Amino acid sequence: MEKKQRPPVYYSEYLQLDKILNAQMPESAKEGIKADDEMLFVIIHQTYELWFKQILHELDIIREIFRQPNVADNSPDIYNSVHRLKRICTILTVLVDQISIIETMTPLDFLDFRDLLRPASGFQSIQFKMIEAALGLNYENRFGQEYYLSQLNQTDIDRVKKAEDEESLLVLLNRWLERMPFSNDEACWSGNAGENGNHPFWDSYRKTYAEGLSPVEQQNLATFDKLFMNENEYPSDRRLSSKASRSAFFIMLYRDFPLLQLPFELLSMLLEIDELLSLWRHRHIHMVQRTIGKRVGTGGSTGAGYLKSAADNHAIFKEIAELTSFLLPRHEIPELPAKLKDALSYNR
């Protein structure tokens, strides 16, 4: 079959450069006010929004993978998800570094045009709210709910609410972790119950963990029991289920086994995303303090105060991070049964 001839692709047309390079319309120019740094301000924020669009694209692909009824732990889908999460982390690193560029604008440079922007604000970034929702930040856990939708038009409110109605990556991750059998696979553990009728792995692990706690760490044991030993006492406010938390913890412990290496990388990338988002917010806080001091934001928020509270409250995957409280040194981690070792090493 003869290959269809396509018309030649021209660089500027392919990239729609006429639209992009003519999309900067500083308010100061409209008013005849000299404000040389407004062009930088516009381009920086347009660049942010382009990167936000790419992050949403990556998250859509990852969530589509995890919507499948079965995602094998060693499948190309898991590799693809980890690869795209790493890309998101790289993009977020660029977004953090990009603040250094806008920090070349001095407070007086910003005051040349700042009042012309009201009430426009980065708080109105629909794509960033959609990213947070896609990752798993739900409305109930948001700081400043009174501001959250107040500055948006109805079209954008509908877009945000639609994004929040979709299954987030955190919800899909919980479902995937619940399907992992290893930590509770009775066949691999020979079905022997522990001392208190619990699974033998968790009884053995608890004993070793308790022996290594210092007096000031004893409260950790009570938390360990709620998370891993008694499902009836499992905290109702956690987003990850008891079974999902057990699986995530098991992955952390036995990450060196081939079958768990990619799942561990996936969990690590999620924690990296939380860390980079927090770093971005804190860099933003320092930039705002340096540029406008204690002034309110152009959108009416408390400026740096709002940003700090959001940074402190918007960790999405903190329940995974908290599991590190219960890790043991490698030489103290319980030995796995031979059958389970084989399963985790592809020896089937």
Rank of each mutant, 00 (worst) to 15 (best):
I157D: 07
I157W: 02
D158Q: 09
D158A: 15
R159P: 09
R159C: 05
R159I: 03
V160E: 13
V160D: 10
V160N: 04
V160K: 00
V160S: 08
K161W: 07
K161S: 07
K161M: 12
K161Y: 02
K161L: 12
K161R: 14
K162H: 14
A163E: 05
A163K: 02
E164V: 06
E164G: 01
E164D: 11
D165K: 13
D165V: 04
D165G: 12
E166I: 12
E166A: 13
E166C: 13
E167S: 14
E167N: 12
E167H: 11
E167W: 07
E167L: 13
S168G: 08
S168T: 06
S168F: 04
S168H: 06
S168N: 00
S168C: 10
S168R: 03
L169K: 02
L169H: 02
L169A: 11
L169G: 03
L170I: 14
L170P: 04
L170E: 00
L170G: 01
L170H: 10
V171L: 14
V171P: 05
L172T: 07
L172C: 06
L172Y: 10
L172N: 11
L172M: 05
L173D: 01
L173C: 03
N174A: 10
N174Q: 09
R175T: 06
R175G: 00
R175N: 04
R175A: 03
R175S: 04
R175W: 01
W176Q: 10
W176L: 02
W176E: 07
W176P: 05
W176D: 06
W176F: 03
L177G: 01
L177S: 00
L177I: 14
L177D: 00
L177R: 01
L177A: 01
L177V: 00
L177Y: 01
L177P: 00
E178K: 02
E178C: 14
E178H: 07
E178F: 09
E178A: 04
R179H: 07
R179V: 07
R179D: 14
R179P: 01
P181F: 02
P181Y: 03
P181N: 05
P181E: 00
P181R: 06
P181H: 12
F182P: 04
F182D: 13
F182G: 03
F182V: 01
F182W: 13
N184H: 13
N184P: 11
D185V: 05
D185A: 09
E186N: 06
E186F: 12
A187N: 15
A187P: 13
A187H: 15
A187W: 12
A187R: 15
C188V: 06
C188G: 11
C188W: 06
C188P: 14
C188R: 01
